[in-house]
Write a protein that binds this DNA or RNA. Structure first.
Lengths: 153, 153
DNA sequence: TTCGATGCAAATAGTTTGCATTCTA
DNA sequence: TAGAATGCAAACTATTTGCATCGAA
């Protein structure tokens, strides 16, 4: 997948007049190697293996810059930190609020909803911003069946 | 709407063997009066108007207890704090990531998605846990149209 | 050489926890 | 009167910001 994706992103940034720094290149590399979603902390750790001087604050600032440039996107999975991935890595997550299992599903599951919201409310869904939360195959038990569970949603 | 909903919730708690304290009654009252969603902080402030001694930590602990008992639910709207409401007040929110506008829509908009996820993945959607994020009628401009915006999603 | 990006430290927001005390059942 | 709930303070996690310095263009 990474037939020098980092290289072309770097070139693209330069074209835009954005500065290409060690931290930015390293963060893009970490995002590219991650493949899927990573928290800012995980990215900071990955970057610091090669470049220990890169500060966590820089990770956050750079992620924000890349978000503004629409190079990265982030998602909130349950209660933890936000997770980031390169834009274009389109996937949707079903997060089980009971056991925490995350299942990736084709983004097309939201296609109808997207069309409905656009048609009925003029609302353009950002389908990747939030995870879809619920209960997975193994953890579901009927709502209102009196079973009370103990975990965070 | 509040034909003594607080009273019956209190009775229900007592039936369950849960203790009924000033803080709990006050929090239920605040949730009931709020009608829609409120952050823990907003609830703490509302409660403290009548009961200044109730500490924010108690608000959080009580909300967690009520969540476990399925009396309250919470939702994450964008980046801010979680917001809480009494279970049964079913509504869905479209949150604009550009201007922050929140539009309430009938929960039925997610009906098809709910059915699809159940059928295809055995996944039971908790449709109220996360807001639906995107861009409202006034703020949308085509994705990939080169317009880069500056706000958080 | 200039101005944006960085490192560091400190601040902030939201939430959780340990512990002694209070109060419900 | 036993043990759950509370108040308080302090810790904790995730994230942001001010400021002096550094470095890409």
């Amino acid at each position: 997948m990474s037939s020098d994706r980092v290289g072309s992103l770097v070139a693209w940034l330069r074209d835009r007049g954005e500065r290409v720094t060690t931290a930015r290149r390293a963060l893009l590399t970490a995002l590219d190697q991650a493949g899927d979603h990573r928290s800012a902390d995980e990215l900071a750790e990955a970057v610091s293996r090669e470049h220990p001087e890169v500060h966590r604050a820089t990770i956050y600032r750079t992620l924000e810059t890349l978000r503004r440039l629409e190079v990265v996107e982030h998602t909130h999975l349950g209660h933890g930190p936000a997770v980031y991935h390169l834009a274009g890595e389109v996937h949707q997550h079903l997060v089980c609020e009971e056991c925490g299992a995350i299942q990736e599903v084709p983004a097309s599951v939201l296609g109808d909803l997207e069309a409905d919201l656009e048609r009925d409310f003029g609302f353009r869904l950002n389908s990747r911003h939030f995870a879809v939360v619920g209960r997975c195959r193994h953890c579901r038990h009927g709502p209102g069946d009196g079973i009370v569970e103990d975990r965070r949603g």
